[in-house]
Write a protein that binds this DNA or RNA. Structure first.
Lengths: 226, 226
DNA sequence: GACACAGTTCGATCATCATCGAAACATCCC
DNA sequence: GGGATGTTTCGATGATGATCGAACTGTGTC
């Protein structure tokens, strides 16, 4: 990796097509094995291995051993949110050639972004929580109100346990192309996990798309009015 | 430029050291000529020209003719904010080797970020405006309150004129390394411009640093209490 | 133990792209 | 017009880095 301004090193890491494909696959939030990532990027396992090494050294990924597998995941939420920002910008500047495919439609409606809900449904969730007074801004930071805390508890989310984690509880994830924010942070991830637990949604097999069941759609609209 | 996922193309553009240096120089918000940018990146003018062409085609920059000069500037605020995000992430992941130089100190205190105020003073401004009830969040978007509008007017900022512009009035610019937001958008730029007009600050010659005069420091603290 | 599977390291190849010298083009000034 | 400055285009060179075949390490299974 050539020397230069720090931003160039990170961008160069993301700038290779193979690596970008891997990062894109990891944006769902799930950890994937080296082989899965190699398939995702359409390269051999050897090549993938060198890429994964670079990404890990660059602190964009972390690896976790599990038997003979090595699972790779995005290093932290900051990486995920920055990548989301870049993706939105790419969309905005018209780098994306393929417009409005049938599968893209599902992604635009609801998708996983580092294990929180993004897309239209993500914006919906966020705005509903704000409007109900469950989330609020104070001096520039997003926080969960007492009302919101109670609401989360009745919804089956153990907020106290979330707060022990080192990363932030509430955070905004900005999507340039939608020009809207939605909820990220450990709370954002907890909501999506809960939706899965209670059978409102399930994940599409090989995609970031989140599929709402008919019941999930109804219940979601009931619990999160706009 | 190799094909691949859209994000890779943008990142690859930023990922070259020479181009990254140019973008860094333009982050102040000022437009610079091709020759100035070549000097900034320490490359010949021919090389700079090809880089600038690529950046312009990639919609990261716009160029403006003025006589025999060609001024280049960041294409829009979205580009600027995304670059700021990447820079913060680079800082966070420890890509930056040079820690806490004497000049970095000034940058951390106050610097220009696409013509709005960033750094500690930027956070200060933002938090003060929030605390005084001049800025508020509603359903996930930042907006100027009626109080804030009146305040801006007495401060010498013509808000009505700003609102006619196509880009957003209020926007947040997130700095990962500081983990705080500050005010961007046309209003953010208007504030910095006004500070310059009334002699509170001036720009360091070849840097993004913003220098507060002694009087500027006092007045700033008076007008924007925390 | 032998075998299959997952992943990494090594070495060689090859394509891409940044770089610069030279030259062309454009604009301003006198 | 002629000369000076700013900028781009062209062509050639060179270095970086992505890629894959082959070989090697480590882990689980029978």
């Amino acid at each position: 990796m050539k020397e230069g301004p720090p931003i160039a090193q990170i961008a160069a890491l993301i700038g290779d097509p193979a690596r970008a494909n891997m990062l894109g696959a990891l944006m769902s939030g799930k950890a994937l094995t080296a082989t899965e990532l190699a398939n995702e990027a359409q390269i051999t396992r050897q090549t993938a291995s060198t890429h994964l090494k670079k990404l890990t050294e660059g602190q964009l990924l972390v690896q976790r051993h599990q038997g003979r597998h090595r699972y790779y995941a995005l290093a932290n939420e900051e990486v995920a949110l920055t990548l989301a920002g870049l993706m939105g910008l790419a969309d905005l500047t018209g780098q994306s050639r393929t417009r409005t495919g049938p599968k893209d439609e599902a992604l635009r409606t609801a998708r996983a972004c580092y294990n929180h809900l993004a897309g239209e449904k993500g914006v919906w969730l966020y705005e509903s929580l704000c409007k109900q007074g469950h989330l609020d801004h104070k001096d520039g930071t997003l926080y969960l109100t007492d009302n919101g805390r109670a609401f989360a508890l009745t919804f089956g989310i153990d907020v106290d346990k979330l707060e022990n984690k080192s990363s932030a509880l509430c955070r905004e994830c900005l999507d340039w192309s939608a020009r809207r924010s939605h909820l990220a942070g450990t709370l954002g991830r907890a909501f999506l996990t809960r939706f899965e637990e209670i059978g409102w949604v399930h994940r599409a097999p090989k995609s970031r798309a989140i599929i709402f069941t008919p019941r999930g759609n109804r219940e979601f609209a009931n619990h999160f009015p706009l």
